[in-house]
Write a protein that binds this DNA or RNA. Structure first.
Lengths: 290, 290
DNA sequence: GGCGCTTTGCAACAAATGTTTTATTAAATG
DNA sequence: CATTTAATAAAACATTTGTTGCAAAGCGCC
């Protein structure tokens, strides 16, 4: 943990009076506690009067001890993801503040988030979800607003490997009416992040009522889209910019479909052969670059 | 960060009243701040009365909110950089050949690919593309098949921050006819990977003929979608499964939009405020989980 | 529609916080 | 040794903290 406070302290430590040094020494040894404990508690543990802490902060040029603990709080916040700011800054030969630097920060932030999806709970949920979708008679895919792209892509990818996929969407899909023919052998894949669209939440409730299993791809374990007992895929949505990021959700959805496709479906190979041949002969698709 | 509080919360979340859920959701989304911020500050950020936080703590069986923040403080103290060693150790726990292992391989492969996008040429292209889109009068977004989700998402995200975006798509969009009104102050964002759809390639040629600048997001420097002199974003599409992966393309597209939004548009802040408020008050969107 | 219950917002409360002031002690200088 | 200065301890201070009591507002149920 690198707190700018530490440097300031080291510079003036020698010229501080005895009690202030005592306090400083404790802070230096317990940087984590600075933000988590009250000043009086820290003073007690350091064997020093409460006033001493304030005086130390002021002696180092800060307004008061609250400034010091705010500094340590920030440090605590930022140390949890070393790959984020740290690496970006480390390998950053680009000047800070340039657009390239911002772009780099965004991309790396995104990569970190996707990498973080490889934790056991998420992987387990992924496998469960894939199994569920794999044995479903039909798979409905639902997602609106930011989540529409994810839902659409899942539907499209599933369409490639089977004919069991149905997109639930007002515009491009068949709309919610398709639920009329839904049965308990079907599965609903739903993607949604805060603020959750009311229609989507209600669709999930309806699906549950009809006996469908629900695979939820959402942004929180507390999401209203999650159904008890069914797999839930949790992804981060915070991004370096203000728009929340759907890239982790998209990536995870793609992995989900890939896992589904991994099932040893004999008919699948035929489809893939067709796809391969199509890809090999893509020349017919774009005869010239123009 | 694994806080025992999170489990307790998840267990009883459904049976909590609306305001308590709102508070709980904020806590779940900002576990680091629980120990670092005062309860009143947290209540303010969560859009909730201070009393609600105390009530939540008590509803979950704790004495008061201080107990909750003590729990989070401990968690904060004990989570030292889980990124490196933890993941490596975790990696070995999964048996090779299991579905979990396959899922992990996919996710990590994807993360690696996204991380690889942070190389100088791509970043430079990203910045150029963002600048181009930023100063465009209108932005057409085009992508079919696998690339549709990307094109749609770009269109949607641009719609959030401006009203200059037009989706070129047969189903949900206005179709290619919109090119009739296209002018050379407009920009075409096109996404496409092999096998390139003929209609898309032709649309790009048409756009060039009309004098539009073209931002291409594609899978090869030799792609027919790339226009000489205009920025080209190259992404990998190979995946651990047979389906080629669009996740890197999606991630890069999202970064592109974020960069565009980075421009200091005064009207943007108003939009964002609205978005934030909407998000803070999202309780109105899903009154109960049912 | 009326009645019971729960939930919510508001305001007051005591406790604890960080700071400042005052008094006391130690150290230093002539 | 006397006197001035700095350093420490103690207490008083205004804020802010987390909590609780109470009234208003929802809400479901007969």
């Amino acid at each position: 943990m690198m707190v700018p406070f530490a440097q300031t302290l080291a510079a003036r430590f020698d010229s501080l009076p005895a009690q202030l040094q005592k306090a400083a020494r404790w802070i230096e040894a317990h940087p984590h506690d600075v933000a988590l404990l009250s000043m009086r508690e820290q003073a007690g543990r350091a064997g020093v009067q409460p006033a001493t802490m304030t005086r130390l902060a002021q002696a180092l040029g800060y307004d008061g001890y609250d400034t010091v603990r705010a500094l340590h709080a920030d440090a605590l916040r930022h140390t949890r993801q070393p790959g984020l700011v740290a690496t970006a800054a480390r390998r950053n030969k680009l000047h800070a503040g340039t657009h390239e630097a911002a772009a780099q920060a965004m991309v790396q932030h995104c990569a970190t988030q996707v990498g973080a999806l490889a934790d056991p709970p998420t992987l387990a949920a992924l496998v469960r979800a894939a199994a569920l979708i794999g044995q479903a008679k039909r798979v409905f895919s639902l997602g609106m607003r930011s989540s529409h792209a994810v839902a659409w892509h899942v539907w499209y990818a599933l369409s490639l490997i089977s004919d069991r996929a149905i997109l639930l969407d007002g515009v491009g899909g068949v709309g919610f009416d398709a639920f009329a023919q839904a049965r308990d052998t079907d599965v609903l894949f739903v993607c949604g992040v805060a603020p959750y669209t009311r229609a989507v939440v209600e669709a999930v409730m309806q699906a549950r009522a009809l006996g469908l299993r629900v695979v939820a791809l959402t942004d929180s374990p507390l999401s209203p889209l999650i159904s008890q007992g069914d797999p839930a895929l949790i992804v981060p949505t915070d991004s370096a910019s203000f728009l929340h990021s759907m890239a982790p959700a998209f990536a995870l959805a793609e992995c989900l479909v890939a896992l589904v496709a991994r099932g040893d479906d004999p008919a699948l190979l035929a489809r893939l052969d067709g796809l391969d041949r199509q890809l090999a002969a893509f020349n017919t698709y774009h005869p010239s670059k123009g």
